[in-house]
Design a protein around this nucleic acid. Sequence first.
DNA 1: TATGAATGAGATTTCATTCAT
DNA 2: TATGAATGAAATCTCATTCAT
Lengths: 199, 199, 199, 199
Amino acid sequence: MVINHNGRYKSDRRTLKRLVILRSAAGVFRRRGYDRAGMREIADGLGVTTGVLYYHFRDKGELLYFCQDYSLGRMLEEGARIRREKGAPATRLRRLIEAQLTCMLDELQGSAAHLEFATLPPRLLKKVVAKRDRYERLMRGIVSKGIRAGAFRRRDPKLVTLAILGAINWTIKWYRPDGGQSATKIAREFADYLIKGLA
Amino acid sequence: MVINHNGRYKSDRRTLKRLVILRSAAGVFRRRGYDRAGMREIADGLGVTTGVLYYHFRDKGELLYFCQDYSLGRMLEEGARIRREKGAPATRLRRLIEAQLTCMLDELQGSAAHLEFATLPPRLLKKVVAKRDRYERLMRGIVSKGIRAGAFRRRDPKLVTLAILGAINWTIKWYRPDGGQSATKIAREFADYLIKGLA
Amino acid sequence: MVINHNGRYKSDRRTLKRLVILRSAAGVFRRRGYDRAGMREIADGLGVTTGVLYYHFRDKGELLYFCQDYSLGRMLEEGARIRREKGAPATRLRRLIEAQLTCMLDELQGSAAHLEFATLPPRLLKKVVAKRDRYERLMRGIVSKGIRAGAFRRRDPKLVTLAILGAINWTIKWYRPDGGQSATKIAREFADYLIKGLA
Amino acid sequence: MVINHNGRYKSDRRTLKRLVILRSAAGVFRRRGYDRAGMREIADGLGVTTGVLYYHFRDKGELLYFCQDYSLGRMLEEGARIRREKGAPATRLRRLIEAQLTCMLDELQGSAAHLEFATLPPRLLKKVVAKRDRYERLMRGIVSKGIRAGAFRRRDPKLVTLAILGAINWTIKWYRPDGGQSATKIAREFADYLIKGLA
DNA sequence: TATGAATGAGATTTCATTCAT
DNA sequence: TATGAATGAAATCTCATTCAT
């Protein structure tokens, strides 16, 4: 996945095809979990054979890696934007929580492949863990700054961040796009509740 | 797994052996995930052959089922005890959060096999989902009652409960027994933070 | 196994390979019986790995099914042809007996996998039993018509048919292609003897 | 299975127990076939554990051997009696056919374990094949003598015998004790038909 | 005699991956 | 680029058999 000087994904045919494959793979990973997702299954969903997958990706692990990398990339993009904004800590934390939930539940339709790490080969694992940690630090930074600024109650910023991330990440276990709760409502209520805990 | 008149697991040799196997299986499930956990691996951890596992359990699914059933059983036991106690809603919710975290992180050493459902055959899935739902309802009940009593702020009890459970369940993804944070400290801080959100 | 408009098996590469596999499987089933026939053994006989078998057939049961289906198909083909012929009942019954024996002992080299049913999964079992019954009815029809026409002695057509089929089917238990008796001679003598019983 | 000087099975406790086991084993072998019959299954049918089977029999093969040996023994007993009788060849052949069918379908309830040889270890195989051949020769002897005496039509006695045995042995594939046809009727009709073929 | 527990070899089956075309 | 066919390693599970008690 090459990013060009515009900060966008290069739109050559190659990359487009990779994105198409990733979308299908992400769906299968979400529905079945990484281990139970078969390459055949992913290929079938695209109407091609497994060979195609191997033409575009080295192996199954790389497929997972790019899913995770893409998800984390989107989240970091949003996060970076929010960090640059002015505003009270509470406001920024709210934006971040809402952005992540919207991203996970709406945009990526709960794919959140970024939640299944154990399987990756070390080389890829290191990269994706690093990216995840960057995102975690980003959120923790907002929390810490809020505490130092006196806007938030004194708490262990690390544990608070992990609690928030847990609440958010867990949503993919129960969220159903056609269920009673819209992603927007969940995002608002979660933000309300999780920020109040810091008041 | 027969429960005798003391409400404890019957300690005949058969049941003891099953518990020994379950402990090993739970460990492997936790470290590797259900799908990547091999029966060989589980057996090796016990110094026996896979045949032994099949002598005591019908198949891999039943092994997972009993792990989940046991974990949920322990949590429900604690939950029932807490529900019977007198005390302010905040106190009871705190007790429940702390109990679940202690149970998951300390007693079961993060096994929490109860978090991987998708794999179970329908018959067992139904039973374990029912048990999980009972626990969820138990926590939601405490939240709802607190709201009705005016002790908690008006929020959607369902979403709040899911947020709390997410924060708690997610701990097994990052908790390390030999890490910087003790289970006790995590439990206290989480309870503080998650209850404050309802104040 | 698709049959094209010529009434023959479509000869694309896929079907050809399936037929090659079936031939090997039929041989092993005959020599060793279905249960003792290993997929390894069948694959070894072809110089391939077991994976190939599973690429072309869903499972072992389907392999058996197609053996039986093919054998019964051949017998029904011959039977249908004979039924359409004019001729005295005795002549037609003779033709049928000889055709089945030739088919079983010569053409299929005693494979007669159609004799081992118990193992098939219900779905396939039903189909193959139906086909077998069609063949049985075909033979019984010739016997009955002969009796009604006064060409055959009055006997229970069902039991006579079962006796004839028993004599024929049993041959695969003792027939040896390199033995003293040629398939042709067996066919003639059996027909003589079994038809005389109806005179 | 020891035979004492009265020509009867010694009725000590040991032998009695062996017979009880054999009866159960024969039933399972018939219903499921030798390979699919599990030692557990046989033991369960008796309300004991597999250990008991191994106390009384060396292994599964010996269990099969004794089933076959017993069946063949019974058939040879009857055969020997019939051979000693005076009477026309047709009468004696009829007696033999009826005796075998009665023995197989009634007395042994279609167990006819003597039909599954392939599995036996060489040592036992040789013995049981020898016994089966003795029975075959017995029947062929009656046929041959009838031909030489001019009572039967000139036919290949070997093939006629194999046809008769096929018709008889095949009955266990379709006979049902609770079906429409009684063993007695089958025996009579088969004898009628099969002897008429020699007239 | 009988049992419960364990073994070990082998069976079928799955699946990521490769490769010639 | 894409496919069909094949591989090989591993996984789950079965089962006859053994053995201490």
